[in-house]
């Protein structure tokens, strides 16, 4: 087999599998940037996958499914927001609870959709003209899903907002030093709510991508741990949306290659890689200025209440 087709297949699969990772990671980056760790990604994704499939199946309109899935993911995330921001409950426990609830609810409600085919999934698109560019054309413009492009555009926009706008300054300030942000007139709770909500919306969308586009059908537990990879990815991306793009595709490539290279590399090694890399990255940036520039937001997991601490 020619090296071109090898490259094309690997990269186009990377885009396809990396998209749900990217969407959910972008959302988690925003939540964590605002200081809220949300371990409920898996739960929000699966509830989105279920809601998206149910709507797409009943209405025959896949985009409506994506829309509702995002909304459901967003609403679902508000439970975590309420617990961790308003009630200032422990974020770790609340996130775990959200995952349990999401897996449980989708499993119970999704029973009657098990085994149903989806006759109107999100169709892949081919961009005429561009698709015939050698190598790049087949990778980028032939048979990819519209959500693939949307996620890339979102990554750029979300990077821009985070680093180049006032809103972004507020978000980062709230995650680094909420007391100071508060004294400067930033509404800490509101920013955090917003960011958690964005995280929920994108996780829901990622779930819908899985159940309406990537593999159009509903199966209990179909996110299969992707939400936890997203947690690792968020770290791996240094909480930066553009690096999130790189990281999501890197992990997706690892996943795809674990099947193509399995005659040579132990699959367990490639599967454990995202988690090991996340820890190594944290170690690498744990010192001095790197920690400040690239490490975790200082106020991550810390609830904020004016006048405390």
């Amino acid at each position: 087999m020619s090296w071109e087709s090898w490259v094309i297949a690997t990269f186009s699969r990377t885009l396809a599998y990396g998209t749900p990772l990217l969407l959910a990671t972008l959302g988690e980056i925003y939540a964590e940037r605002a200081g809220v760790l949300n371990l409920g990604v898996e739960g929000m994704m699966i509830i989105g996958a279920f809601a998206g499939f149910a709507v797409a199946h009943n209405t025959g309109n896949p985009w409506l499914g994506v829309l509702i899935a995002s909304a459901v993911g967003g609403v679902f995330s508000l439970i975590h927001a309420f617990a961790s921001i308003t009630l200032r409950a422990n974020q770790v426990v609340s996130g775990l609870a959200l995952t349990m609830l999401g897996l449980g609810l989708s499993g119970v409600l999704g029973r009657r959709f098990e085994g149903m085919p989806l006759f109107h999934p999100l169709k892949e698109v081919t961009v005429p003209g561009l698709a015939s560019i050698p190598i790049l054309g087949p990778i980028l413009f032939d048979g990819q899903n519209l959500l693939v492009y949307i996620s890339i555009v979102l990554a750029v926009i979300m990077w821009y907002v985070l680093y180049r706008t006032r809103i972004g300054v507020s978000i980062r300030a709230v995650g680094e030093d909420p007391a100071t942000a508060d004294s400067l007139g930033v509404n800490v709770a509101r920013v955090r709510y917003l960011c958690v909500f964005v995280g929920g919306v994108l996780a829901g969308m990622a779930g819908a991508y899985l159940s309406i586009a990537y593999r159009p059908s509903w199966t209990d537990g179909m996110t299969a741990g992707m939400g936890w990879i997203v947690i690792a990815l968020t770290i791996f991306a240094f909480w930066n949306p553009l690096l999130g793009l790189v990281g999501a595709y890197f992990f997706a490539a690892l996943f795809h290659l674990s099947f193509r290279l399995q005659a040579w590399v132990a699959p367990e090694l490639l599967k454990a890689m995202p988690y090991a890399l996340a820890i190594l990255v944290l170690i690498a940036v744990s010192r001095g200025t790197l920690q400040k520039r690239m490490g975790a937001p200082s106020a991550l997991t810390l609830p904020y209440r004016r006048g405390e601490e």
Binding site: G43, I79, A83, L87, R88, A89, N90, V93, S94, L96, A97, L98, T99, M100, L101, G102, L103, G104, L105, S106, G107, V108, R111, D220
Partner: peptide, 25 residues
Amino acid sequence: LPFQLVNVFNGLILFFLIGSDILMR
């Protein structure tokens, strides 16, 4: 009952537990 109900159950208990913490704190 579907086995996933246990998950719903545990998730709810957790939420109420951490939610109620504020009363004590």
